[in-house]
Structure formats: structure tokens, C-alpha cells
């Protein structure tokens, strides 16, 4: 087991009366690959935003590499090694695909000049975007934008990579390609947290699965265990979701 890389300590996040994270605690270790599933609006993307520094939690502490990062902004957390994608791609529209990745390699990846350009080129190759390198991001289709989102996150050379629904809308061969890419990143020792509805993509990568519903973790274990759990099934059928008093739920671990 690797050293703790990311620790959430009783993190809560509310938007008005809507609770997206209720006293969540979680430890992700170096080399871990964690999948998170849950119904829409369960707070998965908000959890990512709390970790990446886009959102401040109402309470609780986020630690990275043993150090509290609550006071750090998103840019500083990126430079520490937290990389993420957005569910709805947010490319730099007026820049080329290559420039998009180059910006990430430059500051987030801590490289300059030639090494930055080489990293950017390598990441484009890895994510299958090489032929698009000189196209303006504004002219990409949705799938290519998702790839660019992934490429940009990888180019920051993260130690923890958070993927937000990068497999949505992909065909089977594309999902296999994506699994290849993510496993490639994992082999370099990067921890991965992957929020995904496409479970067949997740099980190709993760060895641990958590279900997030109503701001709480229900179920935490191997993908097979969690997917077989009656509580999780109930949530996905939509019957138990949002009640908030799900038996045996609560603070993960």
C-alpha cells in the first residue's frame, strides 16, 4: 500500500439547502485507482471541485501529500500535483489543441521551452490528438474536446488525476482506447479518481469503487462488491435516492 496522497477529513459542502457532501472522509493512496459512481446531482463533480480548489468546502479539511491545502487556490494545487478534467469540456477556445496542452505542460507541468513542447507532443500522441494539434479548439467536436480535456490534465504531470465522465458518449472501441490511456498514466505511478456513469469503462481501470448519493458515500470496496450491494442497486433504481437516511450510509471511512 502506498502512502496517503489525498485525504478528505469530514468535508462538507452545501449550496443553500442542497447538500452535495456531508462529512465525507476518504483516503486515496499513491497508485490507487478509485472509481466513483452515483446518480446525477449526487455531488460527484462538486467533490472534485472541492479537491481541485474550484470550490471551498463549508467545513472539513482537504490534505494532499500530508499537507492541508484548503488555503491554496486551484493553480497552486495543480502545481502540487492535482490534475482534473471537467465534465463539460472547457478548452481554451481561441487557442490550438497543441497550445491548450502546452499551457498545461508549462505551468502545471513545471516545464518550459523545449521540454514543455515535447511533453505536449507526447501527450497529444498518447491521447490520439496528434492529427488535431494545429486545429483551433473551437472547431473540435465533443469527443475530441473530451480527449483534449484529458490531454490537458495529463500534461500538468499530476500525481493525482481526477477524471470527470470522460467516457460518456464513447463507442466501445473508443472506451477501450481510453482505458489504455488511463492505465498508461497509472503505470507511471499516478493515482486516479474516476467519476463515471459508464461502468464498463471504470471496471477496466479501477480496483476500488465508491458510490456517492445525497452527499454521502454508500458502499466502498471492490467494484464487484459495490455494484452487487443492495443499497447501491436501490440508489441506481432511483428508489432510495435523496432520502438521506439510507441505512448503513454515512461517512465512508
Amino acid at each position: 500500500m502506498g502512502a496517503p496522497l489525498l485525504e478528505l477529513d469530514r468535508v462538507s459542502k452545501r449550496f443553500g439547502s442542497v447538500v452535495v457532501a456531508e462529512s465525507l472522509s476518504l483516503t486515496v493512496r499513491t497508485g490507487d485507482a478509485l472509481g466513483i459512481v452515483g446518480p446525477n446531482g449526487a455531488g460527484k463533480s462538486s467533490l472534485f471541485s472541492v479537491i481541485s480548489g474550484d470550490l471551498a468546502p463549508n467545513s472539513g479539511e482537504v490534505r494532499f501529500d500530508g499537507r492541508p491545502v484548503n488555503a491554496l487556490g486551484a493553480a497552486a494545487r495543480c502545481r502540487l500535483g492535482i490534475g482534473r478534467t471537467y465534465q463539460v469540456p472547457r478548452s481554451f477556445e481561441h487557442m490550438t489543441v497543441f497550445e491548450n496542452v502546452l499551457v498545461a505542460a508549462g505551468r502545471g507541468g513545471g516545464l518550459a521551452g523545449r521540454p514543455a513542447a515535447e511533453l505536449a507532443a507526447a501527450v497529444l500522441e498518447q491521447t490520439g490528438l496528434r492529427v488535431e494539434a494545429n486545429r483551433p479548439a473551437a472547431r473540435l467536436g465533443l469527443l475530441q474536446r473530451k480527449r483534449l480535456e484529458l490531454a490537458r490534465a495529463i500534461a500538468t504531470r499530476p500525481r493525482l488525476l481526477m477524471l470527470d465522465e470522460v467516457a460518456a458518449g464513447l463507442t466501445d472501441p473508443e472506451v477501450r482506447q481510453l482505458i489504455e490511456v488511463v492505465n498508461g498514466v497509472r503505470r507511471e505511478g499516478v493515482a486516479v479518481i474516476w467519476v463515471e456513469h459508464v461502468v464498463r469503462a471504470l471496471v477496466g481501470v479501477v480496483d476500488r469503487l465508491i458510490c456517492l448519493a445525497g452527499g454521502r458515500f454508500i458502499g466502498d470496496g471492490s467494484p464487484a462488491e459495490v455494484l452487487a450491494s443492495p443499497e447501491v442497486k436501490e440508489v441506481f433504481l432511483g428508489t432510495g435516492y435523496g432520502v438521506g437516511d439510507t441505512p448503513g450510509g454515512g461517512a465512508g471511512r
Partner: peptide, 12 residues
């Protein structure tokens, strides 16, 4: 283009 996205790739 996108201040938030620039921040998450390390730009202050």
C-alpha cells in the same frame, strides 16, 4: 478564454 480552466492547469 477561461480563467477557471487556466487555474486548474496551474496558471495563477
Amino acid at each position: 478564454d477561461d480563467p477557471e480552466a487556466a487555474a486548474i492547469v496551474g496558471t495563477d
